[in-house]
């Protein structure tokens, strides 16, 4: 095999167990994450390469622990913060508002 992996996402040839071929429905919140990427990309706010950079720099622990769309969400949030499209103060305030709204 070739050189060392370039990051936790570089999985070609890595040790791995059997394939779990179960079908999983995509949840609505996951579709919202996917739509967010599509819409931000169409409007020129975020490129797919930036999304990948955000995912590839999550660190090995987070990469393994997070689900697929959780990685996307984490990456997009980081990049939106970097670009100042959302602010670091606004997110926790909004999260609190959303949790308070839960039944």
């Amino acid at each position: 095999m070739s050189a060392e992996p370039i990051g936790p996402h570089d999985l070609g040839g890595a040790p791995a167990g059997p394939i779990d071929a179960h079908e999983h429905a995509v949840a609505h919140w996951e579709k919202q994450v996917d739509a967010m990427m599509t819409l931000l990309s169409e409007r020129g706010h975020l490129k797919v390469d930036e999304l990948r950079r955000g995912i590839e720099t999550l660190g090995a622990d987070a990469y393994e622990r997070l689900s697929y769309y959780e990685r996307w969400a984490q990456s997009m949030t980081t990049i939106l913060l970097e670009k100042g499209i959302v602010t670091p103060e606004a997110i926790p305030a909004k999260v609190a508002e959303i949790k308070a709204r839960q039944p």
Binding site: K31, Q32, A35, R43, L66, Y69, A73, I85, K94
Partner: peptide, 30 residues
């Protein structure tokens, strides 16, 4: 993470980056 997504989504919609209608259409296309 679901709370984070909901928060960022609402901030983007409130900020006029895209609308709930845009999102619905994107999910329909998907």
């Amino acid at each position: 993470h679901m709370a984070l997504v909901a928060a960022v989504r609402e901030l983007l919609i409130e900020g006029g980056i895209y609308s709930a209608e845009d999102e619905r259409r994107a999910i329909e296309r998907m």
